[in-house]
Nucleic acid binder design. Sequence first.
RNA 1: GCGGUCGUGGUGAAGUGGUUAACACACUGGAUUGUGGCUCCAGCAUGCGUGGGUUCGAUCCCCACCGAUCGCCCCA
Length: 417
Amino acid sequence: MLTNAPRGTKDILPDTVGDWLYIEKEIRDLCKRFGYQEIRTPVFEHTELFQRGIGEGTDVVDKEMYTFTDRGGRSVTLRPENTASAVRAYLQNKLYAEADLVKLFYIGSMFRYDRPQAGRLREFHQFGIEALGESNPAVDAEVILLAIKLLEGLGLKDLELSINSVGCPECRSQYRTMLQDFFRDKLEDLCEDCKSRFDRSPLRILDCKKDSDKPYMADAPKITDCLCEECSSHFEALKQHLAKAGVGFKHDPRLVRGLDYYTKTAFEIKYPPLGAQSAVAGGGRYDGLIEEMGGNHTPAVGFATGLERLLLALENQNLLPDKNRSVDAYVVALGEKAQAEAFKLVMDLRDAGLSAAIDYAGRSMKAQMKQANKLNAKYAVILGDDEIAEGAALIRSMADSSQEKVAFDAVIEKIKG
RNA sequence: GCGGUCGUGGUGAAGUGGUUAACACACUGGAUUGUGGCUCCAGCAUGCGUGGGUUCGAUCCCCACCGAUCGCCCCA
């Protein structure tokens, strides 16, 4: 249908653009304070970037990407997330040469072919940050804190921060086998989804909603019991930093991220009232990604937040700014001569930095006054033949209905004051 | 990708197998001379997501498609 945007896309209309500008401004202010710099990467990349970066076998890569062949025969993909692109840009532009720790943020459209529902669109917007080049768990804490500060700074309450460690490749693969050993003889008892998870992503069996209350689940090995010395102390240090910063969090040993690149720290911030799509922000450490993409071994952490979900949450708690539009002056013209004069006055007002509106439909005075009222005009400037003859205009204060006659060249001053 | 619910004007919505599709808000115009916000009056869907089918006749029944929504999945 010609008059319908593609499924899963949405127009951001004039009456909500203000909300977007508002949160984008909060984001930029916050990032500035934390020392994160904005980066803008292409909306599409070589398909391989995401296959390698996010990982084949993940849902995002296997069934959610917008991939197509361009006219030059290249396979390209609309970015489903921004971390892989940021890392690519970091390597390509040798940003690592500028500092040991490079801190970036981005705001932009991402694309995932998924079944749309509230809080889940095919084109959606994310804000995210990436801190590249440092393994200190304090950076993990900084990243998490920035996420929390953003959400709390916007006034959100009732957020739930969950953290976990998914280990490094060594301890995770050990854990994987332990889990598979544990579930192997219970496989028949698990739901269909979990049977397919067994090979693909056994960690996910743990947070399956259907199987999670099975009696033996409590006995399943926990990743945090299997972490190697380094991963384990990293996780402990993170928890200490968070505690010291006074942030409430919950250790959820079942928290797993769906993108392959995560190592050690994984976290998620939920706003439960959002229902099925309640994860407002999520992220973690990805110490292996940069190497995987051909760079030197470079530890990194980041997170992303879904702006549509954020907006939903803010709306839910009534935290969006009021949109009280108003104009400084509405110029009411009566008759043709007056209209020419009024048009010029409107332009002069605008040149003077004021907002001014006028009727172009030749409507009655009453109708024009109604418009002035509807537009929330501070003043109505009335111009008729009488006024023009006197070289003056009537200026009516819409709030208190007081009215005075002012000479043409004093109109702008009067409205400014 | 799977399952459930839903789809009436700009918005919120009522409604019925059969002549004029309630109501409210919004919008537009008017209520004697050039003045808004209150009140009153009038106008505003040949159309009930789209396309088929059943029927003498369908907005109301059936099917498909599209879309929204909820849950699953996934994730932000």
